[in-house]
Design a protein around this nucleic acid. Structure first.
Lengths: 344, 344
DNA sequence: ATACGATGCGCAAACGTTTTTACATTCACT
DNA sequence: AGTGAATGTAAAAACGTTTGCGCATCGTAT
């Protein structure tokens, strides 16, 4: 036995009375080995508790069986759910998932990508990040690093997945328009990220179909708004004539929005209708329950994993694929016809 | 240049006109190298965009600079926050964090541990898991795998971290006792996990200090209760005389508890007081806002990382340490003196 | 009996590093 | 000028695998 207590294939070979190469072939049932030696070797391996060293295998086989994934914030429940599902699916196929947080910072993203390349991950799943650089992705693919994009712009010829944020925002806006709202405030995630851009596009489209003006002053979609939702909500509330509905389209934005409304004494839905994104506990149990447009995080994770696995096993046909995850609107008590006018 | 586009140290050495070994020493500023060759080599490396291969380094150096972490569910916000903080701290020291989900299943936990060992992680952070087996942890340490435990039983001589769940439950219970409650229902995470056991112990201690009986029928702490909180709440509500307060001590239990209460028309806090764990959006914004006992996830993650780093750098003194993370009670509108009696 | 394909196995190279050892050169000092 | 130490470099071993190649051995067919 080698020192350190860890058994190597050398120990197994010695115990089985064969050469290292034969032991390897026996364990992997590869090449020409007799059944009797296979039995001897596997039993020796069993007895010694031998586990092949993944590092050495990676070096030799040029494959680490690890895929990396970059998100802005692992503790964001939207990402956490996706990661969980993706990890499960990948693990079924023998891959591990290494996650990195970019904090929505471009430099950090690049650092992590470099780090992951050094670590020789077999593939990379890239979540949204500010100022997305589609060229960089092309470079990665050119350097033989499979990339799957998630809610992020990417060029033709690559595979990726988008949640239908545009349709979601479109549906949400239309829903409120149908109830008779005409001044609809929009709190959205940053315009620097694909989901933010898509949401605003959907919102705009719904308005324009009704011949209503697209008013910049009714929109808040800065980088910073994540932390300052409440004050953004305040500033929207001070517009006159006041908006009669709020669409709150960011992960942790609903809480700030509701706080802002409550602090000013606006009642939901009598004074203002509210619509949000994601079916959180807060949305379900708030009084009134908040209407929301939502989608299946599990499906996102599984599809991302599936896309990656397809890219990693080229024989399954590797023409690039784009997947669009549908959203659905759940209507609850927080949306109603516009009521009394506020502040006039 | 080697084929495949990836530059190796061989390429750098060739470009700098030195041997491989010298190139290595120059890049790592290790051993005897002249300043002029250091300059030549580093500039060549720069020019070629050389990045050392972490896999080859790991094989040679017997260190992967990866630490593994096992939790029951990555998408549980309590864990996600901890993971995020731990990852950040570890990354500062050059380590990556590989996370695995046990789904609170013992077999899966063992599989993942084996997997991580094959992958040669440098250390392992173990979160709670059912039927914790402290012997297994000793075996790992004996096989030279540093282990840090988190909210999980472990033997003397090891390092680990606990959140003060017992104190938290004790404080919560006392708070309600002080308001005059005598029948306090407890919904807790499973008794198979350390946090669940601790919580029940704290609850019991507070009762006994007041000379009140510890009634099993007021407690729900099964494995299954996570998914069926609502029906568990129903069954607690049917006890006569009815409990006048609910302590809901599980990650995603507050929503189910509130739903159950609301469905039966029990008002908070007029008919029943509610106290929960974790400062979630739901707790803060529910009407009334829910009192809660909470702690700092960031601190948990950072301390876990710190403990691990200390174990990994033995020179810093490696006597085992136990860290206890304090909790604090935030009182809000959901707790009041017991009111009218229900169901009598 | 000779030739020949098939079969099982050992040997050695390779993956990309780091580190040890040994050798050659320079420099200072007697 | 000759010895010693100090210095810089090249060569080679090692980490634990997988795999191509060659060499026996054996059975079968000519």
């Amino acid at each position: 036995m080698s020192k350190g207590g860890r058994k190597t294939i050398k120990d197994v070979a010695a115990a089985a009375g064969v050469s290292i190469g034969t032991a390897s072939r026996a364990l992997n049932r590869r090449g020409r080995v007799s059944e009797t030696t296979v039995a001897r070797v596997t039993s020796a391996a069993q007895r010694l508790g031998y586990q092949p060293d993944a590092i050495a295998q990676s070096l030799r086989l040029k494959s680490t069986m690890v895929v990396g994934m970059l998100v802005t914030d692992l503790s964001n429940p939207f990402f956490a759910g996706v990661i969980r599902a993706a990890e499960r699916r990948l693990q079924e196929s023998g891959y591990a998932l290494l996650v990195g947080n970019t904090d929505n910072d471009l430099t950090r993203e690049q650092q992590l990508i470099d780090l992951f390349r050094r670590r020789r991950v077999d593939g990379l799943i890239l979540g949204p990040c500010e100022a997305e650089n589609t060229g960089m992705i092309g470079d990665l693919e050119a350097a033989d690093m499979p990339v799957i994009c998630y809610d992020r712009d990417f060029d033709e010829g690559l595979s990726g997945l988008h949640v239908a944020h545009r349709k979601a925002a479109y549906d949400a806006t239309r829903h409120l328009l149908n109830l008779g709202h005409e001044r609809i405030a929009l709190l959205s995630s940053s315009i620097k990220l694909s989901p933010g851009r898509e949401r605003i596009a959907g919102y705009r489209q719904a308005l324009e179909e009704r011949g209503l003006p697209f008013r910049e002053d009714l929109i808040r979609a800065h980088q910073s708004s994540m932390e300052f939702v409440k004050s953004e909500a305040y500033s929207l509330m001070s517009i006159r004539p006041a908006p009669t509905a709020f669409i709150s389209l960011g992960t942790r934005m609903l809480a700030g929005t509701l706080e802002g409304l409550r602090d000013n004494g606006w009642r939901v839905p009598e004074d203002v209708s509210v619509l949000t994104v994601g079916d959180t506990d807060l949305a379900r149990l708030y009084v009134p329950a908040i209407s929301t447009v939502t989608w299946d995080l599990n499906s996102v994770g599984e599809n991302l994993a599936e896309l990656m696995l397809r890219r990693l096993a080229p024989e399954t046909g590797s023409e690039p694929r784009r997947i669009m995850i549908p959203t659905k609107l759940i209507d609850r008590g927080s949306c109603a016809r516009p009521g009394r006018l506020i502040g006039d």
